[in-house]
Amino acid sequence: METAHVDRAVISVWRWQGVLTTLIPAIWAFGLVIRFGVPGLFAPLLIVAVGLTLSWVWPEAYYRRLRFGIDASGIAIERGIFWRSRITVPRVRIQHTDVSQGPLQRRFGVGTLKLYTAGSRYTKIELPGLAHAEALALRDALLAESGDSGV
């Protein structure tokens, strides 16, 4: 099965998400510093430094490892930097699909494709970072042929 990367724009989405997630503990830590005085200034600065570095490095690395492939038999998704996994779902097993978009994702024109199976452990399988139009096209392509009950 040929695999491809998702849209590069998703890196920006993840970086912004990283920055926003860093802000929450950082603001809290700065608040504590203001309340109790300067000696503890090191902690919030460390949070900001680590948070921003991770926000910069992690999305790029995760993007490199995230690949997906679709053929007549179904879909395959590879992901993970340290803990790697390759999930394959036969086409007839896809119960229904969603394409979802948050505000940040809308800004960068990407969407998340969600596949639902009748399984027990992996009932929802997500593929983030597809260009929105491509996600919609994939959803339609995956649904076109599966008329079976899926069980």
Binding site: F82, S85, V89, A118, Y122
Partner: peptide, 21 residues
């Protein structure tokens, strides 16, 4: 079969092993 997942932890990769769900 509904779906398949081949996963490799860092320890798995060092010994060329994998788990299958």
């Amino acid at each position: 079969v509904q779906s398949l997942n081949v996963s490799e932890s860092p320890f798995d990769r060092r010994r060329h092993m994998a788990s299958l769900s």
